[in-house]
């Protein structure tokens, strides 16, 4: 159980992010919570591919090593980070335009001021 602390960290990060998305009213805080969920997903992929005692999957000046960690989850994480960055930029752009249009960042106020 104590060896699984990285997995438990993934679960805790995901729960914190989900709590923020569901129960916070400030739309900036919701964007931060979405970023936390992204981080937990990236950490989950990296943790899935770890082998105890493994070195990074790069042969340049590697020295003596016994085994390498799995490279495919790392490649997928690379993809996920860039896509997360693009979606975060788009999210913040939409938040800026919402603030310009409504003059508030509260999601309940924005829903009440519809139209």
């Amino acid at each position: 159980m104590i060896n699984n602390i990285p997995m438990l960290t993934v679960g805790a990060l995901f729960v914190i992010g989900l709590y923020g998305v569901l129960f916070k009213r400030n739309i900036i805080k919701i964007a931060i919570a979405v970023s936390i969920i992204e981080s937990s997903t990236n950490l989950f992929l990296i943790v899935l591919g770890y082998r105890t005692g493994g070195s990074i999957p790069v042969y340049t000046l590697a020295g003596e090593f016994k085994k390498m960690v799995l490279p495919t989850p790392q490649a997928l994480t690379l993809t996920a980070i860039v896509i997360g960055l693009a979606t975060t930029a788009l999210l913040l752009t939409l938040i800026m335009l919402l603030y310009k249009h409504y003059g508030t960042l509260d999601v309940h106020e924005i829903r009440r001021l519809r139209g």
Binding site: T93, M96, Y99, K100, H101
Partner: peptide
């Protein structure tokens, strides 16, 4: 866009 938002905010 930051300037554009802060100039034209409600």
């Amino acid at each position: 866009g930051m300037r554009y938002v802060s100039e034209g905010g409600k």
